[in-house]
C-alpha cells in the first residue's frame, strides 16, 4: 500500500510538476530583474490555448510549443513595456494581464475545445520494468527535461555570465545599475518577456501533454501558485525544481490515497500541497532571514 502511494506520488510529481516548474522559472527570471509578473497565470492559459490550436492546425505539437512561447513572449513584452512607464504598478498591471490573457484565450479558444489535437509523445523511461504502473509513472514528457535544463542554465547564467550579473544588479539595486550605466528598463523588458515565454511553454505542457486537452478550466490557478513557489524557492532556479516536484507529489497524494483505501479526509489531503508549502516556509524562515534571496528592487519589498 505504501509503495503504491509512493509510486503514485513519483508519477504525480513527474506529471504535474512541469507547468509549475516552467512558470516558476519564468517568474524567477522576471523577479531577479526586479519586477513581479502576476500575469503569468494568464500567460499559462493563453500558452495552453495557442499551443493546442497550433498543434491542431499544423499537426505538429512542437510547433504548438513554439507558438506558445511566442505568445508568452508577446504578452510578457507588453507587461515589461507598460511597466517601463513611470509610476506604473507592476502588481496591478500583472493582474490586468492575467485577466487579459485568460480572456483572450477563452475568446479565441472556443473553436478548439471540441477537436482533438496531436499531443506530445512521452519518453518511456520505464521500458526496463514489467510493471505497467511503473511504466506509466516513468513515461516522462520531454518538456520536463527541457525545464530541468532551463533551470540549470539559469542557475549557471545568474552566477557566471555577464548577462546574469546585469540582471541581478538591475534587480537588486537600481542605484548601482544607474551608476554602472546599465539599461534598466531594457533589461527588465527582456527578463519579463523571456520569463513569460517560459510560462507559455508551461501552458503548452498542460494542453499538449497532461492532462492533454484544451478547456477553460485547465489551469485552475496553477500559474498563480507557481508565482508563490518562487518565494518558496528563494529565487533560486534549482530550488524551483525541488519546489515544483514537491508540489506535484503532494498533489498526487489526494487521489492515490483514496484508491488504496484511505477514504477519510480527502479534502484534507487535497490541501496537502499548500500545507507542505507552508510548513517548509515556516521551517526555513528563521529570524531575520525570512526573505533571504529576495531581489532588492521588488515592489513588494520596497
Amino acid at each position: 500500500m505504501i509503495d503504491t502511494v509512493a509510486l503514485a506520488m513519483l508519477g504525480g510529481s513527474l506529471r504535474v510538476s512541469t507547468p509549475f516548474l516552467f512558470v516558476s522559472l519564468g517568474e524567477c527570471l522576471t523577479e531577479k530583474a526586479g519586477r513581479i509578473n502576476l500575469g503569468n497565470e494568464g500567460v499559462l492559459v493563453l500558452g495552453a490555448m495557442v499551443a493546442y490550436a497550433t498543434s491542431y492546425e499544423t499537426g505538429n505539437p512542437w510547433a504548438g510549443i513554439a507558438a506558445a512561447a511566442i505568445a508568452g513572449l508577446l504578452l510578457g513584452g507588453l507587461h515589461g513595456a507598460i511597466c517601463s512607464l513611470t509610476r506604473v504598478n507592476d502588481v496591478a498591471m500583472g493582474i490586468a494581464l492575467m485577466l487579459a490573457g485568460t480572456g483572450t484565450a477563452f475568446f479565441f479558444g472556443k473553436p478548439y475545445v471540441q477537436p482533438s489535437a496531436p499531443l506530445l509523445p512521452g519518453i518511456p523511461l520505464g521500458f526496463w520494468s514489467d510493471s505497467p504502473q511503473l511504466r506509466n509513472a516513468l513515461n516522462v514528457c520531454p518538456l520536463f527535461f527541457l525545464g530541468l535544463l532551463a533551470a540549470f542554465v539559469m542557475h549557471w547564467g545568474f552566477r557566471s555570465t555577464r548577462m546574469g550579473l546585469r540582471i541581478r544588479i538591475v534587480g537588486d539595486s537600481q542605484d548601482a545599475a544607474l551608476a554602472l550605466g546599465l539599461p534598466i528598463n531594457r533589461t527588465r523588458l527582456f527578463a519579463t518577456a523571456a520569463g513569460s515565454a517560459l510560462a507559455g511553454i508551461g501552458g503548452a505542457f498542460l494542453s499538449l501533454y497532461y492532462p492533454g486537452s484544451w478547456n477553460e478550466g485547465l489551469s485552475s490557478g496553477q500559474g498563480l501558485m507557481a508565482v508563490a513557489l518562487v518565494v518558496f524557492a528563494r529565487w533560486n532556479p534549482i530550488n524551483c525544481i525541488y519546489a515544483s516536484l514537491l508540489f506535484g507529489a503532494a498533489g498526487a497524494l489526494g487521489p492515490s490515497l483514496q484508491t488504496v483505501g484511505v477514504t477519510w479526509g480527502y479534502y484534507l489531503f487535497y490541501a496537502a500541497p499548500y500545507v507542505v508549502t507552508l510548513t517548509v516556509l515556516i521551517l526555513t524562515a528563521r529570524g531575520g532571514t525570512a526573505l533571504r534571496g529576495m531581489p532588492g528592487q521588488l515592489s513588494i519589498g520596497r
Partner: peptide, 25 residues
C-alpha cells in the same frame, strides 16, 4: 466499485490524476 471524490465540479488535472491512480490499481 472504487470511488474517488475530487471535491470540485471541474478540476481537470485532479480528474486526470484520479483516472491514472485508478488505472494503476
Amino acid at each position: 466499485t472504487k470511488v474517488i471524490f475530487t471535491g470540485e465540479w471541474s478540476m481537470p488535472v485532479k480528474e486526470a490524476e484520479a483516472t491514472n491512480s485508478l488505472a494503476d490499481q
